[in-house]
């Protein structure tokens, strides 16, 4: 499904991601964890095309996508949510979904003139279903910017899903959420997996990561220090060291 091979991203002398190889299978929820500055967000930005890699390859369904612009990557099947919410604040809720819906559907279908100046079609049933899924049913007419924080997060997830991606990147989707909201989010992530969507989850909140992922990679200093099922990761001493430091002899 997604294959990162020897992927590197250097900012000057800083090796944000260094020679990293990861494979994510179809219909799998893959966790990326690691201390602050370990390169998690950089990986998300590399996969969705905000950054271009210094070296290495990114393959989605066997196709090399590392040379594509971000908008072409959406067409190729990558959608994402943002750590700091980026909605179209001055548009109604449903139009936020419409933007994503249109771009994929039409990118290859129509010629330039129809694509730009034709009326924008939308599948209202699908939008309503997505709003229902996000717990925003009946709120489609409100301005996105006027929603509460938690609702905006749900709308962002819905917008990413509206593009019908093969691979969904979630960049700290639970940041700032309370316990109930996190439980809610976990339910949604599991629902998306049942639709055969592959998901990469970058998250600090361990209850969420351990609860929904099939496999986890642990990063430190831009490299992978461990990979395995949630159970294996929880027991790994390498991981505990990365997070808590080496146990010292205090005697």
């Amino acid at each position: 499904m997604l294959k990162l091979e020897n992927l590197s991203k250097h900012f000057g002398g800083v090796r944000a991601v260094d020679d990293l190889s990861i494979e994510v299978n179809r219909g799998e929820v893959f966790g990326l964890i690691g201390p602050n500055g370990s390169g998690k967000s950089t990986i998300v930005n590399l996969i969705c095309g905000v950054y271009t890699p210094t070296a290495g390859s990114i393959r989605l369904l066997g196709n090399e996508i590392s040379g594509l612009t971000p908008n072409r990557r959406l067409v190729a099947g990558v959608a994402r949510t943002f750590q700091n919410i980026r909605l179209f604040d001055d548009m109604p809720v449903w139009k936020n979904l419409w933007v994503a819906q249109n771009s994929t559907e039409d990118a290859n279908k129509h010629n330039l003139l129809r694509r730009w100046f034709g009326g924008a079609g939308s599948d209202r049933d699908e939008i309503d279903a997505l709003l229902e899924f996000s717990g925003l049913g009946g709120r489609g007419g409100e301005l996105a910017g006027s929603l509460a924080f938690g609702e905006q997060r749900r709308l962002e997830l819905a917008r990413a899903v509206a593009a019908k991606p093969q691979l969904l990147l979630l960049d700290e989707p639970a940041a700032g959420m309370n316990f109930d909201e996190i439980k809610d989010l976990a339910k949604r992530i599991k629902g998306l997996r049942e639709q055969d969507m592959s998901i990469i989850l970058v998250e600090h909140i361990m209850e969420l990561v351990m609860g929904v992922t099939d496999r986890i990679a642990v990063l430190n200093f831009g490299g992978k220090i461990a990979e395995g099922t949630p159970d294996e990761i929880q027991k790994s001493s390498v991981v505990q060291e990365a997070y808590l430091g080496k146990p010292q002899d205090v005697a």
Binding site: F82, R86, F88, D89, D90, V99, A100
Partner: peptide
């Protein structure tokens, strides 16, 4: 309008 409100998000919406 999408580009003017949120350039990066618009790009990632295709």
């Amino acid at each position: 309008r999408a580009v003017s409100q949120q350039g990066i998000a618009a790009q990632l919406c295709g």
